[in-house]
Amino acid sequence: MKILFRLLIILLFFQNYSLAETSQEVDKISKNLRCLICQGQSVYDSQSDFALSMKIVIQNKIDEGKNDEQIYEYLKAKYGEWIVYDPEVNKNTILLWVLPLILFVFGGILIIRKVSIK
């Protein structure tokens, strides 16, 4: 009941802010961003204050003519690598990307050695 009451307050007393339809581009970018204050949700999926503001910021940046890459960079500078779901390849993440491939090649070699051609 209390929460319902609080909600009513929020619903009644809040001033309107942008109701602009979020574009496809915003959806695409926000799907790749972690909502930092939520538990394992993307910005796209979340309805938290943080995520809502983030979507507006992304829209603004798009309107300023920024491309995806620049927007990710901008947010990474503010919040660190943690905010993006798609880690870039750098000295910290090189193993992440390469290790599975190494294992695949290694396994392939083991199979080739095991199998007799004749």
């Binding site: 799907k31 790749n32 943690w82 798609d86 910290n92 993440t93």
Partner: peptide
């Protein structure tokens, strides 16, 4: 190995390097 490394890599990286990364669907 992809799923395993993707799941535990952030833990390893944070302990070793104190860097925090997220690994999500794109990876």
């Amino acid at each position: 190995s992809v799923v395993l490394i993707g799941t535990v890599y952030p833990i390893f990286l944070e302990v070793i390097n104190n860097e925090k990364i997220s690994i999500g669907p794109p990876f």
